[in-house]
Protein backbone atom coordinates (compact mmCIF):
# COMPACT_ATOMS: atom_id res chain seq x y z
CA UNK A 1 0.00 0.00 0.00
CA UNK A 2 2.71 2.44 1.01
CA UNK A 3 4.79 1.44 -1.94
CA UNK A 4 1.90 2.02 -4.27
CA UNK A 5 1.18 5.37 -2.80
CA UNK A 6 4.83 6.29 -2.97
CA UNK A 7 5.15 5.16 -6.52
CA UNK A 8 2.05 6.98 -7.63
CA UNK A 9 3.05 10.26 -6.13
CA UNK A 10 6.69 9.90 -6.94
CA UNK A 11 5.81 9.36 -10.56
CA UNK A 12 3.46 12.32 -10.45
CA UNK A 13 6.14 14.44 -8.87
CA UNK A 14 8.76 13.44 -11.40
CA UNK A 15 6.44 13.90 -14.34
CA UNK A 16 5.36 17.27 -13.06
CA UNK A 17 8.96 18.25 -12.42
CA UNK A 18 9.90 17.25 -15.93
CA UNK A 19 6.99 19.30 -17.07
CA UNK A 20 8.30 22.27 -15.14
CA UNK A 21 11.50 22.06 -17.08
CA UNK A 22 10.06 21.17 -20.43
CA UNK A 23 7.08 23.47 -20.70
CA UNK A 24 7.88 26.63 -22.56
CA UNK A 25 5.11 28.62 -21.02
CA UNK A 26 5.78 29.76 -17.48
CA UNK A 27 2.23 29.23 -16.35
CA UNK A 28 2.35 25.61 -17.35
CA UNK A 29 5.58 25.28 -15.47
CA UNK A 30 4.04 26.94 -12.47
CA UNK A 31 1.07 24.62 -12.43
CA UNK A 32 3.32 21.64 -12.87
CA UNK A 33 5.27 22.85 -9.93
CA UNK A 34 2.09 23.01 -7.93
CA UNK A 35 1.62 19.43 -8.90
CA UNK A 36 5.07 18.55 -7.65
CA UNK A 37 4.36 20.26 -4.40
CA UNK A 38 1.08 18.54 -3.97
CA UNK A 39 2.65 15.16 -4.52
CA UNK A 40 5.40 16.00 -2.16
CA UNK A 41 2.84 16.96 0.44
CA UNK A 42 1.38 13.50 0.18
CA UNK A 43 4.82 12.00 0.47
CA UNK A 44 5.37 14.08 3.57
CA UNK A 45 2.25 12.64 5.03
CA UNK A 46 3.64 9.26 4.24
CA UNK A 47 6.76 10.18 6.12
CA UNK A 48 4.71 11.28 9.10
CA UNK A 49 5.18 14.96 8.58
CA UNK A 50 1.63 16.14 8.90
CA UNK A 51 2.32 19.69 9.76
CA UNK A 52 4.90 20.07 7.06
CA UNK A 53 2.55 18.58 4.55
CA UNK A 54 -0.12 21.11 5.44
CA UNK A 55 2.40 23.90 5.46
CA UNK A 56 3.67 22.71 2.14
CA UNK A 57 0.28 23.12 0.62
CA UNK A 58 -0.63 26.32 2.40
CA UNK A 59 2.64 28.12 2.06
CA UNK A 60 4.15 26.69 -1.06
CA UNK A 61 1.24 25.76 -3.20
CA UNK A 62 -1.21 28.19 -1.69
CA UNK A 63 0.87 31.31 -1.30
CA UNK A 64 4.19 31.20 -3.07
CA UNK A 65 2.98 29.58 -6.22
CA UNK A 66 -0.09 31.76 -6.31
CA UNK A 67 2.28 34.66 -6.18
CA UNK A 68 4.15 33.21 -9.09
CA UNK A 69 1.04 32.69 -11.07
CA UNK A 70 -0.08 36.12 -10.14
CA UNK A 71 3.14 37.68 -11.37
CA UNK A 72 3.10 35.65 -14.54
CA UNK A 73 -0.38 36.86 -15.21
CA UNK A 74 0.46 40.40 -14.28
CA UNK A 75 3.41 40.51 -16.63
CA UNK A 76 1.42 38.56 -19.17
CA UNK A 77 4.58 36.61 -19.82
CA UNK A 78 4.57 34.62 -23.00
CA UNK A 79 6.45 31.54 -23.99
CA UNK A 80 10.14 32.04 -23.79
CA UNK A 81 12.22 32.92 -26.80
CA UNK A 82 15.21 30.96 -27.94
CA UNK A 83 17.78 33.62 -27.50
CA UNK A 84 21.25 33.65 -26.05
CA UNK A 85 23.56 30.69 -25.67
CA UNK A 86 22.38 27.31 -24.64
CA UNK A 87 23.84 25.51 -21.68
CA UNK A 88 22.60 22.18 -22.84
CA UNK A 89 25.97 20.97 -23.97
CA UNK A 90 27.95 21.51 -20.80
CA UNK A 91 24.98 21.20 -18.51
CA UNK A 92 23.21 18.05 -19.58
CA UNK A 93 26.14 15.62 -19.37
CA UNK A 94 27.16 17.12 -16.08
CA UNK A 95 23.65 16.75 -14.77
CA UNK A 96 23.41 13.17 -15.81
CA UNK A 97 26.72 12.41 -14.17
CA UNK A 98 25.63 14.30 -11.10
CA UNK A 99 22.36 12.46 -10.85
CA UNK A 100 23.98 9.14 -11.51
CA UNK A 101 26.58 9.68 -8.88
CA UNK A 102 24.09 10.91 -6.34
CA UNK A 103 21.77 7.98 -6.93
CA UNK A 104 24.64 5.58 -6.86
CA UNK A 105 26.01 6.89 -3.61
CA UNK A 106 22.62 7.00 -2.00
CA UNK A 107 21.75 3.49 -3.02
CA UNK A 108 25.13 1.93 -2.64
CA UNK A 109 26.58 3.54 0.42
CA UNK A 110 24.36 5.75 2.41
CA UNK A 111 21.03 4.02 2.76
CA UNK A 112 20.93 0.35 2.12
CA UNK A 113 17.63 -1.38 1.49
CA UNK A 114 17.21 -2.31 5.09
CA UNK A 115 16.20 1.24 6.10
CA UNK A 116 12.55 1.56 5.18
CA UNK A 117 9.65 3.90 5.55
CA UNK A 118 6.28 2.76 6.81
CA UNK A 119 3.25 4.94 7.14
CA UNK A 120 2.83 5.68 10.80
CA UNK A 121 6.37 4.66 11.52
CA UNK A 122 7.01 8.11 12.80
CA UNK A 123 4.37 10.25 14.43
CA UNK A 124 6.51 13.05 15.78
CA UNK A 125 5.66 15.44 13.00
CA UNK A 126 2.42 16.85 14.30
CA UNK A 127 1.80 20.51 15.02
CA UNK A 128 2.45 19.99 18.70
CA UNK A 129 5.88 18.49 18.17
CA UNK A 130 6.83 21.11 15.68
CA UNK A 131 5.62 23.81 18.00
CA UNK A 132 7.54 22.40 20.92
CA UNK A 133 10.75 22.24 18.99
CA UNK A 134 10.18 25.58 17.40
CA UNK A 135 9.66 27.44 20.61
CA UNK A 136 12.38 25.76 22.57
CA UNK A 137 15.37 24.48 20.63
CA UNK A 138 14.85 26.53 17.55
CA UNK A 139 13.54 29.70 19.14
CA UNK A 140 16.38 31.87 17.97
CA UNK A 141 16.28 30.76 14.34
CA UNK A 142 12.55 31.15 14.44
CA UNK A 143 12.80 34.72 15.63
CA UNK A 144 15.49 35.37 13.09
CA UNK A 145 13.28 34.10 10.33
CA UNK A 146 10.55 36.40 11.50
CA UNK A 147 12.98 39.27 11.12
CA UNK A 148 13.89 37.91 7.74
CA UNK A 149 10.28 37.91 6.71
CA UNK A 150 9.89 41.46 7.90
CA UNK A 151 12.89 42.49 5.91
CA UNK A 152 11.58 40.67 2.90
CA UNK A 153 8.25 42.43 3.21
CA UNK A 154 9.90 45.81 3.39
CA UNK A 155 12.20 44.88 0.55
CA UNK A 156 9.38 43.72 -1.63
CA UNK A 157 7.34 46.82 -0.92
CA UNK A 158 10.23 49.12 -1.64
CA UNK A 159 11.14 47.30 -4.82
CA UNK A 160 7.69 47.02 -6.24
CA UNK A 161 6.26 50.39 -5.39
CA UNK A 162 5.82 53.05 -7.97
CA UNK A 163 8.61 55.55 -8.28
CA UNK A 164 7.70 58.67 -6.42
CA UNK A 165 8.66 61.53 -8.59
Amino acid sequence: MDVILFLIFAVVAVVCAINVVVQTHPISSALSLVGVMGSLAVLYLLLGAEFIAAAQVIVYAGAIMVLFVFVIMLLNAGAETKKGRSYLIPGAPLLIVFLGLMAYYVQRYLFPESAVVRFGGFTGGGPKDIGNALFTTYLLPFEVTSILILVAIIGAVVLARKEIE
Binding site: F51, A54, V57, I58, A61, G62
Partner: peptide, 8 residues
Protein backbone atom coordinates in the same frame (compact mmCIF):
# COMPACT_ATOMS: atom_id res chain seq x y z
CA UNK B 1 -5.01 23.33 8.34
CA UNK B 2 -6.42 20.98 5.76
CA UNK B 3 -9.35 23.25 5.17
CA UNK B 4 -7.09 26.24 4.92
CA UNK B 5 -4.85 24.39 2.52
CA UNK B 6 -7.69 23.29 0.31
CA UNK B 7 -9.34 26.66 0.31
CA UNK B 8 -6.08 28.30 -0.58
Amino acid sequence: LFILAVSS
